[in-house]
Design a binder for these strands. Sequence first.
RNA 1: GGCCCUAUCGUCUAACGGCUAGGACGGCGCCCUUUCACGGCGUAAAUCGGGGUUCGAUUCCCCGUAGGGUCACCA
Length: 478
Amino acid sequence: MSNVVTRFAPSPTGFMHVGSLRTALFAWLYARKHGGRFILRIEDTDKAREVEGSIPHIIESLKWLGIEWDEGVDKGGPHAPYLQSERLELYRSYAQKLLASGYAYPDPYSEAELEGFRKQADDEKRPFLFRNHRPSLIDAWDGTKPLRFKAPRIARYEWNDLVRGPLSAGEEAIDDFILIKSDGYPTYNFAHIVDDIEMEVTYIMRGEEFISSTPKFLSLYEALGITPPAIATLPVILGEAGTKKLGKRDGAKDILDYRADGYLPEAMMNFLALIGWNPGTEQEFFSKAELINAFELERIQISGGQFDEDKLLSVNQHWMRQLTDEDYISRGSLSAPDLEKLKKIVPMLKERAHTFNEAKEMLTGELSCVFSEPTLDPKELVAKEPQDRPGLTKQALETLLEALKSLPEGLSADEVKVALMPLADAEEAIGKGGRGAVLWPLRYALSGQVKSPDPFTLVSILGPEESIPRVQKAIEFL
RNA sequence: GGCCCUAUCGUCUAACGGCUAGGACGGCGCCCUUUCACGGCGUAAAUCGGGGUUCGAUUCCCCGUAGGGUCACCA
């Protein structure tokens, strides 16, 4: 059994977007690749920012994508509970430990006093550091004041990042941050470290916004006398504009909106994995199993990557095409007045649609002619009639009508083509554009659309039975 | 502003210090074709700038420049 333990630890402050999901994906991939464990922990230590319904939403998003966890909220496990708000006793006991060893002290200042210190530092154009204001007399901690960490070592910190290699920060990155807030909840800085220790997490994967605070975490581990886990910094995902980190405020979409828009989770996973990681080969499409197999920390990108919806569309189309026709209909929740005909046109949908929403639009739009008789515009019907051959359209349709009458049921599009194409070719031989003068009216008579599948396919799907009346109706216009 | 990080086609990216800097998405063109879509073929398109080190730099070092992150009783 491997000792790899990774986690995803979101705060329940709203929906999941592609940025947070990608972080979860990489942590999960790494655990799976190495036969380790993956934990889902919820960091709900800020009750003011908490958004109702976030936790089920997070769970649903992860499950949709196909990420499953070995321990976590909703599932339990050896380190339960997995909700930080239910672990307050644990944080308090760690706080007592730090207090006892002299690495914590209650913050004696009022908010106004603190504000004064900040302003003073600002006026003097130097960074504000709380550790410059450590009180000389340390009161007992009664829980009403915030508890601060007393950094054991004011020094330059250097560490190794699994993705970026050696990183470092000067001593101004070290400060006496708050461990326990005055409301009794721990801060993120404190709680996540306690939990990672208690849950035996061995690899931490997170976004680059945490690089600057890493020295703080390291000094806390130091005060606790514990070796920190390995850290891998993931590149950010940028919004379409390409400058800012993708976030909720700049229009990042809820991941479940992609589900609603008819994207496949396997496509989303494939696409997300390739932002900020690549296998070093020219392979572009990866199933879940292939991703797990190919995933390597060493091949994670350093610089941020932009989210390109066009590429997602193309990846999605690829995975939609991999589906069997039955799966295509069921996973796309496709419906139509005639199920048998729907089954027949799935290949056409696969050819055209990039998402299931597009497929649905086609069923009620350009492909609706398959299910119901179109209304015709006589002008469009003769759109391809050569100027010098008036009446050709009518003549062609009448010829086609006879041919259709002798056509057996159940022919494939190719077979229909073999039967009807010679009629078009005969006209083509007479004058140029003659083929179009025959096939366009046929296609239009059957579809009522300027853009549609070819007439042979339409005849094959509709059968002579439905095709004949449509052609007759068209002839009546002429 | 302090500290930190980053930099290859428009985008995602490949390239032990060594070929005409490769692929994918998108673009454009041609072919296929009655239309649309699909497909096939082709094409344009990049190493941020300046110095070093080296026989040789996209790659290593320094300086600029640009972008980003972070400096909370948020996570």
